[in-house]
Amino acid sequence: MKQSVVQLFVTCLVDSLFPSVGESTIAILEGQGLTVEFPFDQTCCGQPAFNAGFQKEAKSMARHIVEVLHDTQGPIISPSGSCAEMLTHHGPELLANDPDIAPKAREVASRVRELTAFLVNDLGITNVGARVEEQRAAYHSSCHGLRGLGIDDEPRQLLQQVEGLEFAELPEAETCCGFGGIFSIEMPEISTAMLDSKIENLMSTGADVLVGGDVGCLMHIEGGLRRRGIAIQVAHIATILRKGNG
């Protein structure tokens, strides 16, 4: 795989709600001497529809994103374990029976990488030269990245190399925060109960900042912290890794 050029798949949530996470991702990748391209017609990976059982809609969205991404070169990097997992596994499954697109879906899937996995496993880098003001950080493992793609150690390794960051293990870091996309709206009470448990664990760490790799989970946790008036910051790992090096 030619690695001087990479593609950014920014995800719909980052696009509309957290565009700076996309900018940080670019900065980190460019800091490694890579040229970042952004296929402009990209939209959404289709996961919201897929998880809710709207297979036809999920398929049409998956088809669109595959068409947009397959004519590009280099690894496709996404600052989300969840969306990367969708493109890696469920996209090709959904499109498996459509001979015109199935090979393209598999080809795209083979190039998709979650940001931290790409840095650590493909580039072999754990220190991106980030520096932050002295603070204590806890890491929340988002479910799809963790269980779908096996991303566990990579973000921790990267965070441990950040100057000024003290790393605190979050109890039950691997337990879902209750976001689950549509789940948070279909089952709001249980979703909130799960969030409260997550916040309780988070508070036990004494962390100043909670770091994660998926803005979906992070906006859920931050939304809960804000509503409860708890002054713990929430940051996407790209935002932390970008700090101190432009």
Partner: peptide
């Protein structure tokens, strides 16, 4: 962060704030 949303969004904002969309999307910034 938004403290209340209409319709289905209410089920989120009854217990959680929701991030306000940025005035300029990533697409626009790019």
């Amino acid at each position: 962060w938004m403290t209340s949303l209409p319709a289905m969004g209410k089920k989120w904002t009854s217990t959680r704030d929701f991030p306000s969309p940025e005035t300029r999307t990533f697409h626009q910034r790019w």
